[in-house]
Design a binder for these strands. Structure first.
Lengths: 150, 150
DNA sequence: CTCCTAATCGGAATCGTTCCGGTTTTATTC
DNA sequence: GAATAAAACCGGAACGATTCCGATTAGGAG
């Protein structure tokens, strides 16, 4: 997915082309990692110092509904990242320090579908949490990791 | 894990034997499914109508730290369940309707450790979400599922 | 029973998120 | 380009989960 494709999806669905929304998509595309609403809001400050939190949440919800971003939640917060370039279904290693992620193409559910004949499966998640090399280095230099919640 | 084993773990670690805590463990053991803090609090009302929310959260945190309960979070809330009888590491199918869960013994991380030589892995989660037969029936009888968030 | 302190209470504070009435921006039509 | 309708946004209040804190209660050692 590119920013242009994302904006196109929104336009085709009848949503207006708003500058704030475009900037949000731009940031999400550039950062290419999981961001909290707050992080995104802070990055928007430069261009829109008056930006309302409502705008962030409303648009993140929309982008999620449109399949432009993927969402996960841990450590009490929801986190969003621009949908990876990879078209196929996949999972992630996620750095708890910076939100960077690495794709894991295997989907464990593939081997397990047969186990749940009577249950109605509506979703699943498989995530590996840890610290990327850069954040490990940062921890060695500084005061160490925070408490791992997972 | 049984309630007795759990209380023993707490005692051995130097924690006092409090009646509220014991009742919490009892409920978690009996329910044998994922509960939110609120659900647990409601179930405690019968015995302790004056119970403070702080007591629920403080003890859930303690039980989690002691490995007596496992925690996951989805739909904006943390959910806790008594640690399954199975000793070995495993994962869950979780019913979004009632929190019931079914064990999945395969761990997808087993086949993937070699992929993350430079990352420091501190945890992972693999969960399958859906509706158990009983909740599917309830949905057919009633007003249907809520929106699935996963 | 007495004493010490862990455990609890209750009520305020915090934090992420949502809601709402009023205002601004975008797209359309003239 | 002006007029118009609706989407998008703002600011601030509201909400729900969770945490914090000073005062009180209760477990258990002596």
């Amino acid at each position: 997915m590119t920013k242009e494709e994302a904006m196109r999806l929104l336009e085709d669905a009848g949503y207006r082309h708003s500058r704030r929304r475009e900037r949000m998509v731009q940031i999400l595309a550039d950062e290419d990692r999981y961001l909290t609403a707050r992080e995104l809001w802070e990055k928007m400050q430069a261009a829109y110092p008056e930006l309302s939190a409502d705008t962030i949440y409303r648009n993140l919800g929309l982008l999620h509904d449109m399949g432009i971003v993927t969402m996960t939640e841990f450590q009490g917060e929801r986190r969003y990242r621009f949908h990876c370039g990879i078209r196929d279904h996949h999972h992630h290693f996620i750095c708890l320090g910076c939100g960077a992620s690495e794709e894991v193409l295997d989907c464990p559910l593939d081997h397990l579908q047969h186990r749940f004949k009577d249950a109605a499966i509506v979703g699943h998640r498989f995530e590996i949490f840890g610290y990327c090399p850069a954040c490990q280095q940062k921890a060695r230099d500084g005061e160490g990791y925070g408490t791992a919640l997972v």
